[in-house]
Design a protein around this nucleic acid. Structure first.
Length: 390
DNA sequence: TCGCCTAGCACTTTTGAAGTGG
DNA sequence: ACCACTTCAAAAGTGCTAGGCG
């Protein structure tokens, strides 16, 4: 476990310990394999380059699974979830809120290319999401995950017991996310410390350090080496307006909306552009933990035959559409991060009180207040799913 | 004027086809 | 004919920078 500096030494922000590297829901345990690397970046404020043609993540997501049924088939998926409803900008060597978020781009989900595979297969070795690509091109036809620059996201993993990608709507599922994987999407690196860290860890970047244009070397050498205690100035996260109070109430909203077995799934037809409401209503964090819950949700939308292939162009948007519909209807994890209680917070909290990711309990249930916030309008505020699925 | 985005650059790493030998 | 291994060129991927754009 990586050692983190004393939070009290941070000048402007405080800090709380990170969440554990692995999470358990029911019998299923997911571990973030390269957690220490993620934390190294997280410590500075992870930035992910997004380009028009798609850029791989670095660090990339690598997970391992345990507790699956060896002979049952599973589909493993990953998607990106907005951390909050704000846009950020890099100013004076730190991230600050720059206003409301842009309307969410089409939500896309990446399915691990091995899917579906048996539990024993998934547990045999770690799963790499190396080939996931991020883009800011809203008209991307390659199936890359579309993000907004200068917005904050975190990857979320779905483990769905299903024999094929087309039956994921019926299968028991769990969802996991890891606080240290939160990042800011950028088109060019803002924080030189991130650049340096990436060059140190990413072999592709060596070319720029050891040969070719060395101009950047000078740039990097110009980077001020900050005292270690400054390292914990979690640019985005700690500046993030916090809202723990909202967490419980919001998560109850989710549970209240959970469909009943055999119920009319059309109730989930909230294919409205959630981004609209997302950015016009105060955003709160849903932190409903579905740990150990396996729900059977009847589908209202039939899946079109399609299999994800990282090398092939996505030819059917409909699959994504259906997938998102599924995720929307079955959303699990509802962000384990501190989301702003409202926009007012964002406006006033340039140095918000820290709400560590880890302050939100992982793997525990929060079933209080299930009966509140149960209408669709409340639900549509939530940013995780059903951005105007195209 | 400022901040963000993009294309092109020079380089390394990865990938896969082709060749070789047992 | 088949398999395993090696070689090598092409493709993919990287961060930096200048210039464009709103």
């Amino acid at each position: 476990m990586q050692h983190f500096p004393d939070p009290k030494s941070n000048l402007s922000m405080s800090w709380t310990p990170p969440a554990p590297d692995s999470q358990q829901q029911g019998c299923v345990r997911m571990t973030l394999e390269n957690s220490s690397l993620w934390k190294s970046f997280h410590c500075i404020g992870t930035e992910m380059i997004i380009t028009k043609h798609g850029r791989r993540m670095f660090p990339h997501c690598s997970i391992s699974l345990a507790g699956l049924q060896p002979f049952a088939n599973y589909v493993i998926m990953m998607d990106m979830v907005p951390v909050d409803s704000f846009k950020y900008r890099w100013k004076k060597e730190q991230w600050e809120v720059a206003g409301k978020a842009e309307p969410q781009p089409p939500c896309r989900t990446y399915m691990h290319p091995d899917s579906p595979a048996t539990g024993s297969h998934w547990m045999k070795q770690s799963l790499s999401f190396l080939k996931v690509k991020l883009t800011n091109n809203h008209f991307d036809q390659h199936g890359h995950i579309i993000l907004h620059s200068m917005h904050r996201y975190y990857p979320r993993f779905h483990v769905i017991q299903a024999d094929s990608p087309y039956t994921v709507r019926w299968g028991p599922f769990q969802t996991f996310s890891f606080p240290e994987t939160t990042f800011t999407a950028v088109t060019a690196y803002q924080n030189p410390k991130i650049t340096k860290l990436k060059i140190d860890h990413n072999p592709f970047a060596k070319g720029f350090r050891e040969g070719g244009t060395h101009s950047h070397s000078k740039r990097l050498s110009d980077t001020r080496v900050l005292p270690i205690e400054r390292c914990i100035s979690f640019p985005g996260l700690q500046r993030m307006p916090s809202t723990t109070n909202s967490v419980l109430s919001e998560k109850t909203q989710v549970s209240a909306l959970l469909p009943v077995k055999g119920g009319n799934h059309s109730a989930w037809s909230l294919e409205q552009d959630a981004s609209e409401s997302l950015h016009t209503e105060p955003l709160e964090l849903l932190e409903y933990d579905y740990s150990c819950e396996e729900q059977m949700v009847p589908a209202s939308v039939a899946y079109q035959p399609y299999r994800f292939d990282t090398s092939a162009e996505i030819k059917s948007n409909e699959f994504h559409q259906n997938l998102n519909h599924f995720l929307f209807s079955r959303s699990v994890d509802y962000a384990r991060f501190p989301f702003p209680a409202n926009d007012l917070d964002a406006a006033h909290l340039h140095h918000p009180p820290p709400q560590s990711l880890a302050t939100v309990e992982h793997g525990s249930r929060h079933h209080t207040d299930h009966h509140r916030h149960s209408n669709a309008a409340d639900w549509s505020q939530y940013p995780l799913f059903s951005y105007s699925c195209w």
